[in-house]
């Protein structure tokens, strides 16, 4: 499961929903895998306001990954321009300004969309219940006494 998915999930126990500590869920004994995906800078720029930045930063630290910057980057920081002659130009004289993903964008893409939890647990900070992740699929089904 992708780390971006955790931005939209919480503990399945009804009474935990109103408690701030039920979000985000805390990964435990996670086995991570990088699953490469094509970067989409426009998507990254648009999703920024939807990210719970501080909580994501906490998650990333708990997983022992390189820390996110303390505040969310501006959309403009996700692109940089590069001067380059188009491939069709054999003279190399017609230099053009190209917009390419910046390092910030590539790092964000790697964390949100390419870093996957393959197995381990997700623990609620409020009730302590642990949800298992097996073969990349999280199981949020509760035992009958918790429903």
């Amino acid at each position: 499961m992708k780390l971006l998915t955790l931005n939209f999930l919480t503990c399945a126990v009804k009474t935990c929903k109103t408690s701030a500590s039920s979000f985000p869920l805390h990964p435990r004994d996670s086995e991570l895998e990088i699953v490469e995906a094509e970067i989409n800078v426009q998507f990254l720029q648009n999703i920024l306001p939807r990210l719970m930045w501080e909580e994501l930063g906490g998650l990333v630290n708990e997983l022992g990954l390189p820390s996110l910057p303390p505040t969310a980057p501006l959309p403009s920081a996700l692109v940089e321009s590069k001067l380059q002659a188009p491939e069709s130009d054999t003279t190399g004289l017609n230099i053009e300004k190209l917009e390419v993903p910046s390092q910030v964008a590539r790092d964000l893409h790697r964390v949100l969309l390419e870093t996957c939890i393959m197995s381990g647990g997700l623990v609620c900070g409020n009730c302590g219940h642990e949800y298992k992740v097996l073969e990349g699929v999280a199981n949020f089904l509760l035992p009958a006494h918790l429903v």
Binding site: M1, K2, L4, T5, N7, F8, L9, T10, C11, A12, K14, K17, F23, Y131, G136, V137, A138, N139, F140, L141, L142, V147
Partner: peptide, 14 residues
Amino acid sequence: LDIVNGDLASSIRP
């Protein structure tokens, strides 16, 4: 994103 194994939308952030 993902498919999660769960009961209805019980694990979705409000």
